[in-house]
Each structure stands twice: as structure tokens, then as C-alpha cells.
Design a protein around this nucleic acid. Structure first.
Lengths: 144, 144
DNA sequence: GCTTGTCGCAACCTTTTCTGTTACGACTGT
DNA sequence: ACAGTCGTAACAGAAAAGGTTGCGACAAGC
């Protein structure tokens, strides 16, 4: 599967901002986060922009600008992040419409759609069980 | 998410072969399946080749050649198919190693790894609950 | 009001992955 | 020997994500 790292990077950024704020700072810059995640600041700004649209973070502009959490880490779940940064469904249908004159070609899409919906619902439940507070705790628990 | 259709096409092919065999035929050709799925025979052969390596189907060569099921549809689950055709994990880590000098950069990968493993385990459970027999039943149940 | 640091966003390129296509050898029933 | 099908390699095309550059918008401090 062509897995992508958007959820991972977004969680990284949120954990970073949360920890930084707990250390007494008001805002974090995309450049700081990008350094930690070893990527480009624009990539971080793009991702955080999606999280802002979802109401998870806020941004300030001008000198001393940067990003801050709009909610407590403990109230943000991986599901919130997932829905903010992952547009499409987990499993895709055929790229071209199957042969509608064939029994299987006709019925396969509704059949798989129903199955996939159930699976994605379960996935969402699992993602909703993990908060960014949990993530940060695990991050800090890593042995050095 | 860059969802891909490999699981969908593989399920389509298996359901097609299973139904065709129930209609009294011995083997199905990649060309027949490709017509139903509206794609290229080579794409089907590639996918079925992976399913053969997993022991789900068998192939014969020569005149009158084609594909047949190696197991009953009812004993093949979507998990079997998923593991045969989806190589990597559902969620990826960073493409480049995060800053190991940063607390978050250091701890984020083990943290997310642990979380993702639990989620993938749940996904596998869900996939294992659906057999190709279920899929074919749903396919045939589609209203016309 | 000028300077400065940061975001906002568009444009473009590169990389990666999946899919589609062509080609040809290998195999086997007739 | 022939014909039909798989097996597989090679390559082209499409789509998505990520990386990079550039520049305008904005706001705090002087």
C-alpha cells in the first residue's frame, strides 16, 4: 500500500507544539518543527494549515508569529488528525468502471463499498481511542 | 490517502473465478477476468501471481490454460488477500529520519510504531471476518 | 513609517507508486 | 507442429506526495 506519512508528521508537529508550550513558550514556528521532523517548513505549514481548518491549531502572523494549539493535547485524538489530513477512503475502487454487463462487474462495487465502510468505521474507532496526550507520553517514554 | 485498488481487483478476480467454476468451468483466463474488471490481462496475471504465491489460486499453462481456486471461497478471507497483495504497513513513518537530538524527533517513531501496530492488528481482525464467500454473496445480492 | 520575521499561497520539480501496454519466451493440449 | 495461455521483463503514463523557491501579506518593535 502506498502509505503516506501525513498522519505521522501531523502528530509529530502537534506533539512538538504541545511540549514546547508546556516549556513556557507561546508559539512554535514552522521552521522549528520542520527541523525536528527533518523536512521543509512549507510542508509543515501546509499540514498545519489543514489542522487549523479543522480547528486543532491556531496561527499568528507578523514578527513573533507562529503556531499554537487551539485545544488541549488530551482532547485531540488521532481521528481528529486523520480526518483533517487524509482526504480519501482507505481502499479504492477500480480506476475504471468494471463491465456492468457482467454479474460480478456489476455487483462488486456496492459489495466492496459496504465491506470497506464497516472496516473504516472500525479504524476510526481505534484512532479515536488515542489522544495526542497519549502520543506525547509515549514519545517521552522512549528509552535513550 | 493514496488508496490503491489492489485489494478490490484481487477480490473481484477471486469472486469471478469462484462463480465461473460454480457454473461448471474448470479454469478462467486472465483475459476473461480483465474484461470483467475493465483492465489489462497482464494486470490480472500479476495480481493472481501474488495470490498463487500465497496459495490461494493455481494456474495451468498451455492450451486450455487458466486460473482456478486452490481453496474454497468460504475459506479465503480478505485478510489472506490483503496480506498477499499489500506489501507495506498502512501508515508510514517519516521519509527522512527526524532530528534524533530533539526529544520529540527521537521518541516519535517508536511511539507511533506502537500505536500503528495496534491499529493494524485491529484492521487485520476485521479483514479476517469477511470471506470471499461473503463477498460473492453480496455481489450477487446487488439489485439490478 | 520602516524594518524584520513569519505565515499564506501559488508554481514548479522530483520522487515514488501504481497502472497500463507491448513484447516475447515457455509451456501444453490437440 | 500449432495455437492458446501463462510468466515475466521492460517501458510508458498517470497520479499523489513531498520538496523547493519565490513573493506578497501581515504585525511587532523600533
Amino acid at each position: 500500500m502506498s502509505a503516506n506519512s501525513r498522519l505521522t508528521i501531523a502528530a509529530h508537529a502537534l506533539a512538538w507544539i504541545g511540549l514546547y508550550q508546556r516549556q513556557g513558550h507561546e508559539v512554535a514556528t514552522s521552521e522549528q518543527i520542520a527541523t525536528s521532523a527533518n523536512t521543509n517548513p512549507v510542508v509543515i505549514r501546509r499540514l498545519l494549515g489543514e489542522l487549523r481548518r479543522a480547528g486543532l491549531v491556531e496561527s499568528r502572523r507578523g514578527v513573533g508569529a507562529g503556531w499554537s494549539l487551539a485545544r488541549e493535547l488530551g482532547s485531540i485524538t488521532l481521528l481528529d488528525v486523520y480526518e483533517a489530513v487524509e482526504p480519501g477512503p482507505l481502499f479504492a475502487m477500480h480506476r475504471t468502471t468494471p463491465d456492468q454487463g457482467c454479474v460480478v462487474g456489476y455487483g462488486i462495487q456496492p459489495a466492496m463499498q459496504g465491506i470497506y465502510e464497516g472496516i473504516e468505521e472500525t479504524l476510526r474507532h481505534e484512532l479515536a481511542r488515542v489522544t495526542l496526550e497519549n502520543v506525547l507520553r509515549d514519545v517521552l517514554a522512549a528509552p535513550r
